[in-house]
Design a protein around this nucleic acid. Structure first.
Lengths: 218, 218
DNA sequence: CTTGTATATTTTGTCAACGATATTGAATAA
DNA sequence: TTATTCAATATCGTTGACAAAATATACAAG
């Protein structure tokens, strides 16, 4: 495998799970030293990440981990909600036995984590649950778009779903979503998924918290 | 402006409007000579285009203009339909006077082209019409996603809408879409837009024609 | 005539160095 | 003190060269 490819994946992972903070500077020379390569593969990795939106490059002024303003963040969460709604609609229309099984398993795992009042595990299983829905839409391209945007939003979602009182609410929504998909109710599936995702991104308290941590870091 | 940026735009344009054919090889040295630069900015441009999906790079095996298989193409058109449906839904909900004016102007331009039975002009005005809807959703991110995917699909849509008998049908659909958006009917707007776009991508004759030209080129 | 192998050629991936541009800091003037 | 200009510095963009891998060619064996 080529170096710029593995570097892209490594840097992307570090951004997504927060080791590289929002807004922090990505110095080519520094990264090159850290990874023991020349600047070329670093540059190539950063350019690729810039196209995904995870990194922002200003010509002759270097790269930073993207720090979208509040307005754009809200727009991104709304778009995520629309895409998930589409996935849910198509999943309800096309559900195949294998996906139904996976869906129920993912829901059960969420329920177990909620029963344990274990936010960390719930966070993980919640991710799995949504990924299963993406796949169930039986549209590889839409599925991939959903996963890309989900990944891109992860840094801004980190502190959410940690509070225990949210788990029960989230789980109830999951159950309603699964019921709609399994029964083939396209409209209910898409409406419920849209509302579910919007709640994650639309809570001003959480969003403001994200934004505070961004401006603090800068 | 940096060379790799302008090269990216130039190459992207050549792909979108067909001067660089689907599936054709993108030789770094050849492109470097043609544009009078070294290989580095060419490589950087190609890497960026690879992230948008317009170009496909296999490590150590060079780059080609992406040639998605039929299944993926259908998935992409379906995703386009879903995104446009979302734009239409939000536009119906949020329509502001400026967008309403722009929408009616774009519709009138389509009507004029259809009356003249001028497929080329209609093709252009059709593009404008859809772009106006993207903007009317008042979500900059979703709007940009819609434009990106539209651009990416352009090479596979080129021979469509040229047949005169399709113009009347397309225009009637446009009128119904505008009526739904203006009246604030979210459901009708999204359903009609979805159906309208699907028709563009789902006509097997057109699609098969696209695919034939791809496999012929290869 | 086909198949397999070894060699030659082409093309890609990476590096190090150079030239160009933005940023920083100091010095000067208002 | 504040603002401005200029020089020094650091960082980025691009180049040409080299190393590594894949492809094409030539040749030999079955």
């Amino acid at each position: 495998m080529t170096r710029s490819l593995s570097l892209r994946q490594t840097i992307e992972t570090e951004i997504v799970d927060g080791r590289l903070a929002i807004g922090s500077r990505l110095d080519e020379t520094e990264l090159a030293e850290r990874f023991g390569v020349s600047r070329t593969p670093i540059r190539e990795a950063l350019l690729q990440l810039a196209m995904t939106g995870l990194v922002e490059i200003k010509p002759r002024r270097g790269a930073i981990v993207s720090a979208p303003d509040p307005e754009l963040l809200i727009a991104m969460f709304e778009t995520m909600a629309e895409i998930e709604a589409s996935c849910g609609r198509l999943a309800a229309r096309r559900l195949i036995p294998a996906d139904e099984t996976a869906l129920k398993q993912a829901l059960a795992a969420c329920a177990a984590a909620a029963a344990d009042e274990d936010p960390e595990t719930y966070y993980q299983e919640n991710y799995t649950f949504h990924t299963v829905i993406y796949r169930a839409c039986r549209n590889d391209f839409l599925c991939e778009q959903a996963r890309l945007l989900h990944r891109r939003l992860t840094p801004f979602r980190r502190m959410q779903l940690r509070a225990r009182h949210r788990l029960g609410q989230s789980l109830a929504e999951h159950e309603a979503i699964v019921a709609a998909i399994v029964s083939g109710d396209e409209i209910a599936a898409s409406d419920r998924l849209r509302a579910h995702v919007i709640v994650q991104g639309d809570r001003f308290s959480d969003l403001v918290a994200s934004l505070r941590s961004i401006s603090d870091a800068a």
